[in-house]
């Protein structure tokens, strides 16, 4: 098919946004700008979910990643920014390009596997766009009941652990 459909054009634009901002996240010097581009990259991934007609996941992506994780990182950055601001290089001092061949090698392997084995899995997805929220909720409360409850316990443990780890220890403070 030589002509590019609207869907494919949208995918290209979103992929460009995701990859471009991800590269900036990995290379920019100012860590605050990195965080903003990380949020843009998360937004692009939400767009990919929409293209895959995963509407609930797209909403959750915006809520959890942009609304929670990015804001959390922003708080952590503000608490630690005194010594790690723009005047210091954010990357490793020497050899900062050394990870590049590692990343490219992994990409080559993944890409080769995908191109060779991915083509058989095609299903015509044109007529299956249904709202997914109800189906996911039903699946979570019936078939995936146990993982669902375990995830809630995990979140509780992580919350308590994060509070304990980040709390200022005043008991053995000499002052």
């Amino acid at each position: 098919m030589p002509t590019i459909t609207l869907q494919q054009f949208m995918f290209g634009a979103i992929a460009l946004v995701i990859l471009g901002s991800a590269i900036l996240v990995a290379t920019l010097r100012n860590i605050f700008h990195c965080l903003l581009f990380l949020a843009l990259s998360f937004l692009g991934v939400a767009g990919v979910y929409l293209l895959l007609s995963a509407d609930f996941l797209a909403a959750v992506q915006v809520l959890v990643y942009i609304g929670a994780i990015t804001v959390l990182m922003m708080f952590a950055l503000m608490m630690t920014h005194r010594v790690m601001t723009t005047d210091i290089s954010q990357s490793l001092t020497q050899w900062w390009l050394a990870p590049l061949p590692i990343a490219l090698g992994i990409f080559a392997v993944l890409f080769r596997v995908y191109v060779r084995h991915g083509g058989q899995a095609l299903v015509d997805t044109k007529h299956h766009a249904v709202p997914t929220t109800g189906i996911i909720g039903q699946a979570l409360l019936t078939r995936y009941m146990l993982p669902f409850e375990l995830a809630s316990i995990l979140l509780l443990v992580a919350m308590v652990g994060a509070i304990i780890l980040a709390k200022e220890d005043k008991s053995d403070d000499p002052a």
Partner: peptide, 18 residues
């Protein structure tokens, strides 16, 4: 795959823990 490898590069080359 590309996003994953950019993530790997960021993890390996960053000096800031965040």
């Amino acid at each position: 795959a590309a996003l994953f490898c950019i993530g790997i590069f960021a993890v390996l080359s960053r000096r800031n823990a965040i």
